[in-house]
Design a protein around this nucleic acid. Structure first.
Lengths: 160, 160
DNA sequence: CTAGAACCTCAAGGTAACTTGAGGTCAAGC
DNA sequence: GCTTGACCTCAAGTTACCTTGAGGTTCTAG
């Protein structure tokens, strides 16, 4: 009996283990599962068991969130992964590739904003007619109601 | 009588006028007022009237939001403006100056993420132990509950 | 075999930033 | 004088992303 265990790598992880390893709360895992972002099998006692796969998925989800992609869209992307088999490197690479552009676009946007801010600090203006910063921000108003698109940023109590 | 009007610049703006000029909805102006971000005086008929000042404040608010600063904090900053007199260029400049750093920090963060993503697309990894992208995203988990900090980005139906 | 930790489900709560709606008033043109 | 559009207030709804709580089950160590 002791001979069967020593080198057995745990194939399935409990929700608590996944939480500990991924750094997300158990409740968040439940939530992600409800949203179809991750999957699990159940033990005879109805407890969740995750394949190691899930860690990569979660990593992907958090990374995508950091890029500013809403969960719904992340879920849609994940669902394009070839079901059945474990995703390969290529699968992941394909998934991420499209998002690089978005990241770049966001960076460009922020860069413009910063440039504008640099100008504006010089002139102290923020004048409605001419200020680039104002105009940059103003385009947001064109979007509809509700919180348009949220990005999680690292700005804790420690201050960015 | 006709001689008194021709060159009279409207000193006070109605809520509708402010909305039209600033590009924000009337309901948003109400909302901002409730949050203490802007102020108004009332006519005898209880209607709001805004000084032209408010346009600059709104421009500032939208710009700050674009930088990723939550309304509460924007309000706090605005309240440090010397009350009573109309804010000067310098007042505004001082206010914006601190936010430049935050913008820069955010840009740096995104840039790191992009670099990591570039690496990761190469290797297709997202491995928990080693992947820089994952680790970058993972730190988000350290923040408390709720929506940590939202940034409005320009990603309408057009895709941006 | 039993205490306590870890899990389960489902409903409800919380925050941010607004919008929508109901019910009513005000102001300006004809 | 009356209609119409702009305003007013206050409560409730919306979206995104989770967390908290209640009430109950399962697992594991001693």
């Amino acid at each position: 009996m002791s001979a069967t265990k020593p080198f057995q790598i745990k194939a399935l992880l409990s929700v608590g283990e996944v939480a500990a390893r991924s750094g997300v709360a158990v409740s968040t895992l439940h939530f992600y599962e409800a949203r179809g972002l991750i999957e699990s099998v159940r033990t005879s006692g109805n407890q969740r068991r995750y394949g190691r796969d899930v860690l990569r998925r979660i990593a992907f989800i958090r990374a995508a969130q950091a890029v500013g992609i809403p969960l719904a869209e992340i879920g849609a992307a994940l669902n394009t992964l070839p079901g059945g088999r474990t995703p390969t490197r290529d699968d992941w690479a394909q998934l991420s590739a499209g998002w690089r552009e978005r990241l770049e676009a966001r960076i460009r946007h922020l860069q413009q904003l910063k440039d504008a801010l640099d100008d504006c600090i010089g002139c102290g203006c923020l004048s409605l007619a001419t200020c680039r910063l104002h105009n940059a921000g103003d385009r947001l108003a064109a979007l509809g109601p509700g919180p348009h698109r949220a990005v999680h940023v690292m700005t804790g109590p420690d201050g960015a």
